[in-house]
């Protein structure tokens, strides 16, 4: 089980801010999780099919697509940041 959080434009498009996901056996990286989420429907596919830049964090650290996800992790997806 992992916790997944969505922020900013993603949170609004998906109408989701957080959820618990049972990781399928073949989903062990950020890239694989994005593909898994993209299968949920049009809004999800639009965000996670690779056309848009979506940043990810695992346990509060920015990571790239090849980062490994383990049970118990907190994973977050969000658009490129715009603070400052």
């Amino acid at each position: 089980m992992i916790t997944v959080l969505y922020f900013a434009r993603l949170k609004e498009s998906l109408n989701y801010s957080t959820e618990e996901i049972d990781l399928p056996a073949d989903v062990s990286s950020i890239a694989a999780l994005k593909l898994h989420l993209a299968k949920r429907g049009e809004a999800w596919a639009n965000l996670f099919n690779g056309q848009q830049t979506i940043r990810a964090a695992i346990n509060h650290a920015l990571v790239e697509n090849d980062a490994v996800i383990k049970n118990g992790d907190e994973v977050a997806f969000f658009p490129p940041v715009t603070g400052g």
Partner: peptide
């Protein structure tokens, strides 16, 4: 610090 804050710190403006 500002250059990294603008590109890595998780803030979003609407």
């Amino acid at each position: 610090i500002m250059d990294y804050l603008k590109t890595e710190a998780p803030f979003w403006k609407k």
